[in-house]
Amino acid sequence: MVDEATKKSLTCIPVLKTKAGPRDKDLWVQRLKEEYQALIQYVQNNKGADNDWFRLESNKEGTRWFGKCWYIHNLLKYEFDIEFDIPVTYPATAPEIALPELDGKTAKMYRGGKICLTDHFKPLWARNVPKFGIAHAMALGLGPWLAVEIPDMIEKGVISYKEKT
């Protein structure tokens, strides 16, 4: 089940309209504009809620995305790189978000650092195509994953705080 905080943040992210993938030429450009618009709104929402937890940007074609996410645990801010590609069958297929630095440090990850999502994610995504986009994948996928896995990895000593110089 999706927790209440995630549900609330999801409802505040604008939904997308255009069903287009990276090979759909002009329609893909339209989809990309919608993706960016939704992401901008989501980041603004997060800033307003004092929970600014990620940044993302893409290559010019919008097929490769990268950025950073942050998780605060015991007053320390942990930072991780994010990367993912847009699958050819997007948006029917959700992007596989990866945190490459954590590859091999948790069982909740596929090879290459791709995060394992809960059983709820795929059917929820499928029911909401094409309305859900990258912002929704972050809210439904990476956000909850960080909340569960990062504290666990910290407690186990698998990851340690890196002070910014």
């Binding site: 339209q30 919608e34 603004q44 893409s58």
Partner: peptide
């Protein structure tokens, strides 16, 4: 989302500036 009147380049720049 309402993307009328805004270009993709503008949106990319807006996201980068956040």
């Amino acid at each position: 989302v309402d993307t009328s009147g805004v270009s993709l380049d503008d949106l990319m720049a807006q996201m980068k500036a956040m």
